[in-house]
Design a binder for these strands. Structure first.
Lengths: 223, 223
DNA sequence: TGGTCATATGACCGTCCGGTCACACGGAGG
DNA sequence: CCTCCGTGTGACCGGACGGTCATATGACCA
C-alpha cells in the first residue's frame, strides 16, 4: 500500500514512477528488477521510492494491481456486452482478438502480466496472483452465465471447468506473440490478422463445442 | 555442455551436484538461484562447479535437460502404450493421473519444471524451453495420431490445436497442486484421488469431446 | 624418490543489490 | 526573519552474487 505522501504527489511524477516500474519489472521480473534502475529511469532519487512505498514488494504489488485494473477496464465492454444477438463462440473469439490486440499495443501491461505469471517466490506470487485471479473470475463467470441464460451454452455446461481452462489459457494467449520460447506451438505468432482469427477459433472450438446448445456451433460428426 | 572433467567424475559426486542444483534452481529459479548454495549443499567447493560447467547458465541448461529426460522416460509407457482397447478419453485421463502422481512424488523434477516455465530472461528461456517443448511434442503428436488411427478421434480432428492446448496445460496440471497461487481455480488441489480423477475428466472432456468419433464419449445434448 | 598433471579448494575480486540516513530545500505560519 | 516540517536527495551500509586463481592434494610413472 503506498504511503500518504504518494497520494499527494503530482500526477506527472506518479505516472513517471509507475511507468518506470512497469518497464523494469515487466522486463526483468520482480526479483531481478532493480530499484536503482527504476529510480534512474523515473528521474527520481532512490530514497524517494522508500518515501512512497515501504519497500520493493510494496511497489511491485502496487504496480501489479494498477496494471490489472487497467487491463480489466479495457476488457469490460467485452465482459458485459454479450446479449445473445450473435452466437457465443463468435463473441468469445471477438473478445480474444481484442485481448490480443490490447496486449500487442501495450508492452508495459504485457510485461507486468508476464512478470506476475512467472514469479517463483511463493510469498510474492500469492500477494500478486490471488487478487488478480479474483478480478478475472469476477468478470468471466458472469459472461459464461449470460451465455447460459441466452441459451448459447447448455444449462449443464461445466462452467467451473471452462473457467479454470480459460484462466490458464488467457495469459498465454496474451504473451505468446511477444515472448519467444514461451509457447511456440500456439499458432498465433507472426501471421496475418485473418489467419490469427481463424486460429483463435480453432483453439476455442474444442473448448466450447461440446457445451454449445445451438446446432450451428456443432460440426457434423463423421459417420 | 559439461566439461570432460564432469564425465570422469564418480557417479556419486555427479549425483550430489545434480540434486543440489535441481533443488536450488527448482526452489528459487535460475536468476535467483545461487551457485554458493549449490556448492555448499553438494559438499563441493564453488571453484569445482566451474571445472565442470562453463558457468551458471551451462549448469542450469544441463539440469533442465537431465530433468526433462527423466520426466520423458517416466511418461513413455503412456505415450506409446495406446492401442485402442479402451477409449482415448479414458486413456488420456489415466495418463494425466500418472503425470500428476509423478510430480507429486518428485519435488526436484517439479521444481525444475516450475523454474523452466517461469524464467523471464529471454535468452535463458530459449535455451531451455525450445528443446524441452520439442521433446514433449515428439511424444504427444504420435499419441494423438494413434488415437486417430484407432478411430477414437475423428479424422478431421485439429491435432495442431489440441497439441498446443495440451502443451500449455501440462505444466500447469503438474504444478498446480504444489504451487499455491499459480492457478487456484483448477480443481485439483487438496482433494481425494477419486474426486481428482473425476475433475481431470471434467477438464479433458471439453477438449476432446468435439473430436471424439465414438458415441459413448459424447454426452446427450439437451433438446 | 622426484616430477607431472588432473583435480579440488576457498579466499578473493569487482559489482550490484535493497535499504538507510544525515542533510538540503522551500513553502507556510508565527 | 526565523522556525518548522513535508519532501527530495545520493552517499553509504552490509551482504550476496558470479566468477577467478594461486595453491594444495594425491595418483601415477620414471
Amino acid at each position: 500500500m503506498p504511503t500518504p505522501t504518494w497520494t499527494r504527489l503530482s500526477p506527472a511524477r506518479r505516472e513517471r514512477i509507475l511507468v518506470a516500474a512497469m518497464d523494469e519489472f515487466g522486463t526483468h521480473g520482480y526479483s531481478t528488477g532493480s530499484l536503482n534502475v527504476i529510480a534512474r529511469e523515473a528521474g527520481v532519487a532512490k530514497g524517494s521510492l522508500f518515501q512512497y512505498f515501504s519497500g520493493k514488494l510494496d511497489l511491485f504489488t502496487y504496480v501489479a494491481e494498477q496494471t490489472s485494473l487497467r487491463i480489466y477496464a479495457h476488457m469490460q465492454p467485452w465482459l458485459d456486452g454479450y446479449d445473445g444477438t450473435i452466437d457465443f463462440t463468435t463473441h468469445l473469439v471477438n473478445s480474444l482478438e481484442a485481448w490480443l490486440d490490447y496486449f500487442a499495443g501495450q508492452p508495459l501491461e504485457r510485461g507486468v502480466t508476464a512478470a506476475t505469471n512467472m514469479e517463483m517466490d511463493p510469498a510474492v506470487r500469492n500477494a500478486i496472483r490471488v487478487p488478480v485471479n479474483a478480478i478475472y473470475l469476477s468478470g468471466l463467470r458472469p459472461l459464461l452465465e449470460q451465455a447460459v441464460a441466452t441459451g448459447d451454452l447448455r444449462k449443464d455446461a461445466d462452467l467451473d471447468a471452462l473457467l479454470a481452462l480459460l484462466l490458464v489459457l488467457l495469459p498465454h494467449l496474451a504473451l505468446v506473440p511477444h515472448v519467444p520460447g514461451l509457447d511456440d506451438p500456439l499458432p498465433l505468432t507472426g501471421i496475418h490478422a485473418e489467419v490469427r482469427r481463424e486460429n483463435l477459433g480453432r483453439l476455442v472450438a474444442p473448448l466450447l463445442a461440446d457445451y454449445s446448445a445451438r446446432d450451428r456451433d456443432r460440426p457434423t460428426p463423421s459417420p
